[in-house]
Write a protein that binds this DNA or RNA. Structure first.
Lengths: 376, 376
DNA sequence: CGTCTTTACTTGACGTGATGCACAAATCTG
DNA sequence: CAGATTTGTGCATCACGTCAAGTAAAGACG
């Protein structure tokens, strides 16, 4: 089935903005109603769209509308997140709902072994009787972009100039795209999360490091050779704690999960404390933990304000493995956000999104999904 | 003459990327050669395009190409920059070349008086025998955007909710657009300056304040209600000089023109010193001036690195009334840029653009020009 | 209870805007 | 002077979306 621009636009609109009547979709996309009947017919015949059971709910004048819905099970995607020592994979449907997941350790970084693990994970997730796999997405920390199938340099995997997407594509026989991990998470928010309905927003992730993904003018910002959103080492002040690169007072020294844990556990000389232990101490009012989390919140607030001042997003989404620290440092965060927001603006709206680790792999799946629907 | 998307694209391509043969333009825009004959014919007939005199220069096989050139005198624009106490206006042709300029003091901020000054300036610049005025652009500090004809709040002009573009449009009878001053400068660079050929770049201006304009994915970034690029109060450190809002070590306290002058003149207790006097002292190795300019350069380097880390531009353009201080602080600038650039990236390429004050008004003209060609 | 109004959807004729193809034009190459 | 090569043009064609007209399905109303 050859797709026109209008067909793609209609399908994506229905996928992202839920069931819509033809009339409503036509209004939103500035198309004629007749265009919509024409455009949707082949999708319905091929089973990609379906007419919703008439809800008989809203009593309104005129002929009742016939909402169209994407048949989300009609396509299937696998997303894979690579870290230095483990591989996480999920299978999702068209709505990015996770259908199955798996993970496996990476013994070494030899490309043949990793490739084997990847193909194994994919076959595990896509057995018999399931909708055929449409595309695979792979995300990793570093400067990958979907428009380029090769990993140029990956410090922690020790790869350079590795055409990973092409290798996987040849091994599995399915289109494969590569992307930066934070950008992949941003793609999830853009189509299926808090970003829906916003033409510009920023996603800030707090976890092992601090990341930032940007959507501006409805487009995910890539940056030159994939290097945008590098906020981890933003200078907060010049007297604070030190990061592993020797930056005093940089954002990840203040607010990353390992830095916070180290700071509390180190000061108390209790190396066994986990991050959540530290968080519990702060919740109980322990002065050291409180101070560390307050400073982390302040650092994050300043970071969010800086990103917002520069890019002017409608919304900032906070997420990552350590977002739940907001429960103890929200006040410090808001104070710093207000203090560092440019005086002519009001502080940007911030929403906190809870985070589970498989979200990383889901991001990779959404990257594949977007690429397939927009450029497939 | 009704314009199709392709016609607009071809015209803009020829305007921005200089004379091009039909064949070359067709390749760049992914159109068929025959489309180009068809598209360019009405422009040539109406006198907007012209076939260049055959240069007989480049000896190459095949039929020689017939480059097309925009007849830049065919349209005319006026750009106006408003400051608290003066109005600067220029008239330009289609290539944004300044044809005439004028300025006049603003006695007060009463809207009728200002409107009178504006219309007077426009009639001064557009006398008899000149190509008819196509559009007017007005730029001012603050959060204006071309999509909205009203000045919502302008702190230093004391206006709020003033539909300035509509008023000028009614008074002069020509389409009028409003924009932020730094964004207008960025538009000049995008189409007629260093930004040509780059799909993403940042413009940093250093003058009375510090501004930032962004182009990402070939689009000028506006930000929510025009609030992007607010880098002036970026925190550089927390011990440095103080700005007028009481921020310690913020960028404008380190690197804006008045702050530098105040810092040198104040320390030396010589209030008569101008900025250029201070610059001369630094050039001569005066320890106080040297230190102040070095710190300004460092602050700017850190600021540029921060913007580049977040948005990943291909290029950063430095401009503004005080850029020429680079002649004494380039080393400090480069060192700070390298130090604050994210470790996985190489420092962004920076070019310094000399600046004359009428550039502000030229920016407004280019805003009008872009708006006219893209949406007129 | 029938008729009117309102909104949703469908169908086929039509128009617009770009393409493909054939061809002319203008140069260099051997 | 006969290819080779590239540019530019005219015309048939085609693809994609709009327009106009008509059908469908509900509530509103006398």
């Amino acid at each position: 089935m050859r797709l026109t621009d209008a067909m793609r636009a209609v399908f994506v609109e229905l996928l992202v903005h839920g069931p819509l009547s033809r009339a409503e979709a036509a209004r939103r996309l500035a198309l004629s109603p007749s265009a919509l009947t024409k455009v949707t017919k082949p999708f319905i015949e091929a089973g990609y769209l379906r007419e919703q059971a008439t809800g008989e709910g809203t009593a309104t004048v005129g002929r009742p509308s016939q909402p169209l819905e994407v048949e989300v099970s009609r396509m299937s995607f696998v997303g894979i997140k690579l870290t230095a020592d483990e591989l996480f994979a999920v299978r999702t449907d068209l709505a990015a709902t996770i259908q199955a997941e798996t993970s496996r350790p990476l013994i070494d970084h030899d490309i043949d072994n990793v490739l084997g693990q990847i193909t194994q994970a994919i076959t595990d997730l896509t057995g018999e009787g399931r909708p055929p796999l449409s595309a695979v997405g792979i995300s990793l920390a570093g400067t990958a972009t979907p428009s380029d199938p090769v990993v140029h340099t990956s410090p922690f995997l020790g790869w350079s100039q590795l055409p990973l997407a092409r290798l996987v594509e040849e091994a599995v026989g399915v289109p494969t795209v590569l992307d930066n991990d934070v950008r992949a998470l941003t793609a999830v928010q853009q189509w299926f999360g808090e970003g829906v309905g916003h033409s510009s927003f920023a996603l800030i992730t707090v976890g092992a490091g601090i990341g930032c993904g940007l959507v501006i003018g409805d487009r995910l910002v890539t940056g030159q050779s994939g290097a945008a959103g590098l906020v981890g080492h933003l200078s907060i002040d010049d007297r604070g704690p030190m990061c592993e690169l020797g930056h005093r007072g940089c954002a990840r020294a203040y607010a990353s999960l390992p830095a916070i844990r180290r700071s509390v556990a180190g000061t108390l000389d209790r190396p066994e404390l986990t991050f959540d232990d530290c968080l519990a101490l702060a919740r109980d009012g322990h002065p050291v933990a409180r101070r560390v989390f307050d400073e982390a919140g302040s650092a994050l607030g300043q970071l969010v304000a800086t990103v917002a001042n520069i890019t002017g997003p409608e919304l900032v989404i906070l997420s990552g493995e350590a977002v739940h620290m907001q429960e103890v440092c929200a006040d410090a965060f808001q104070a710093a956000l207000a203090r560092h927001t440019h005086w002519t603006s009001t502080p940007v709206r911030v929403v906190v999104k809870p985070f589970t680790f498989n979200e990383w792999a889901r991001g990779a799946a959404v990257t594949a999904l977007q690429h397939q629907l927009l450029h497939g």
